[in-house]
Design a protein around this nucleic acid. Structure first.
Lengths: 208, 208
DNA sequence: CATTGATGTTACTATCATTAACATACAGTA
DNA sequence: TACTGTATGTTAATGATAGTAACATCAATG
């Protein structure tokens, strides 16, 4: 988004485009994406219920922008986790996993937006900022770790996806509320960290 | 649900309760849970738009039943995977993972129902059939494997949750359609199986 | 200034969720 | 067989929503 585009949006409201995304994000955080209505977002932003349609094709389009905002937040925390951990360490990898777990848990309503029905159908656009999701941050951390451990022949890309799966799955399971039903004393953070370390130990075991 | 309850439902339509659940499931499979409407389900079942409210408190209640149906289907396939693999083998565990991955992929619209916004909020009921989800099937397979490998001091419950996370995460990631963006040649089935084997190797490595 | 395109508003349509009032058919009982 | 109650279904109505169309305004540009 260029500065010129921003300026073009400053006619009446100021920046209704952004205001609506923020309003939608807040409403969704309160009441879930299922109960979200375009009309509510418009009211929250102080405009008529038809105004949003000057900025978003339809409801799905607005939700798509909120989803992008959520992914951006996820990536931001990942960058912070990297900043406070040593390069090439397994601690960096587990810190990234922990961040993911906590981010998703702290914003459960966003999870649906990022991974639910809408996301599945809408995510084929080219304009997606690859760095936003934080996957490449994880990939870098994995590559550094493999290098520092001398495991240079291992496929970092596959390993990163496998770790991502584990982290994402643990987050989804924790958030679903189903876990205590099966495992009352479950500590998802500890289980996730142990899973990561066990997985890495499994990789090293091939060379032992 | 008792036989008497079933009979009570055969007044006018025959079994509108079940008919609506099936109709809803089909509609959701076609157009996603986001576009599902109570009125559509009623029309598909050939009754007035108010009729469903004699059987379901509200829309969420009906969706909740569809979700249960989806979980039941998931559990059924798991039982079949167990039937065709040897007890105590790692093949049984990977077969369960593979089934999960394929079930979720083949019914993407159900995923939202089972793990999305609605599921998160509605899943605190006591009437949930624990066996339906298939978790205990996995847990049994893990316990058998640990026994057969002499790893009897390992916590099967934790390991089952860790494996579930990995499987669930890989399924969610595959289904999201985001993966080719990061890893164009990704083969989720192979990655999942390798992840499972690597994880198990990591557990064994502790005793080496 | 006059024009023009972007941004908002009001008014309108179609649809939906949900409820209330009314209708009917089946089960049990006299 | 007729009587009665309850479960099941219908029609009609309410309030809200998504999305569109016609109209209004405002800021930049000539």
């Amino acid at each position: 988004m260029t500065a010129a585009t921003q300026a073009q949006r400053a006619y009446h409201h100021g920046d209704l485009h952004s205001a609506l995304i923020v309003a939608a994000a807040e409403l969704i955080e309160e009441s879930g994406s299922m109960n979200f209505s375009m009309a509510d977002a418009a009211r929250k932003a102080g405009v008529s219920t038809a105004a949003p349609y000057r900025h978003f094709r339809d409801k799905e389009d607005l939700l798509d922008w909120v989803s992008r905002l959520a992914f951006y937040g996820l990536g931001e925390g990942a960058r912070q986790a990297v900043a406070r951990t040593p390069d090439g360490s397994i601690e960096r990898i587990t810190a990234l996993g922990n961040h993911y777990l906590n981010y998703v848990s702290s914003k459960p309503a966003f999870y649906d937006l990022m991974w639910g029905d809408i996301a599945i159908r809408a995510f084929n656009q080219d304009d997606f900022d690859r760095n936003a999701s934080g996957f490449y941050i994880l990939l870098d951390a994995v590559q550094s770790y493999l290098d520092s451990e001398g495991l240079t022949s291992e496929p970092a890309l596959d390993i990163a996806v496998q770790l991502w799966s584990s982290v994402h799955g643990m987050s989804a399971i924790r958030m679903s509320g189903k876990l205590p039903h099966f495992h009352p004393q479950a500590d998802t953070e500890k289980m996730l960290e142990r899973a990561t370390r066990t997985f890495m130990a499994g990789i090293k075991a091939k060379y032992a």
